[in-house]
């Protein structure tokens, strides 16, 4: 699993890159009340804003961590945004990307580096 400075995680699964937000991000956001996900089939580029998450406090953008195509989104977190607080690193993933260049993953932090990053 890899981590971005935007507090997203990426993990490879069946040739796709699954993306979500970290426990730390979920705690900082507070209760999540709204999630808007991209359409499947959307071509995205790294650092592009692809969806929005709103907590009781504020709205935040979720960025595409790598170039590629959105091939699957997790509608369960749209139906029940609270899942993002319950299991951000597991069931509450956001979307799956078919990566154009999987080596972009290498730029990101591993778990130990991320733990240092958030202090």
């Amino acid at each position: 699993m890899k981590f971005t400075e935007e507090h997203e995680w990426l993990r490879e699964e069946d040739g796709l890159i699954v993306v979500g937000i970290t426990d730390h991000a979920s705690e900082q956001l507070g209760d999540v009340v709204f999630v808007e996900l991209p359409e499947t089939g959307t071509e995205v580029t790294k650092d592009e804003e692809v969806c929005v998450i709103e907590s009781v406090k504020a709205a935040s953008d979720i960025l595409a961590p790598i170039d590629g195509e959105i091939v699957e989104v997790n509608d369960a977190i749209v139906e029940d945004p609270g899942k993002v607080n319950e299991d951000p690193m597991g069931d509450a993933w956001f979307f799956k990307i078919k990566a154009a260049d999987p080596s972009q993953m290498d730029d990101y932090m591993d778990e130990a580096a991320y733990k240092d990053f958030i202090g």
Binding site: G30, D31, V33, V56, K57, G82
Partner: peptide, 9 residues
Amino acid sequence: VQYGLGVMK
């Protein structure tokens, strides 16, 4: 601004 329960609870 909030305690352990969080704003919603």
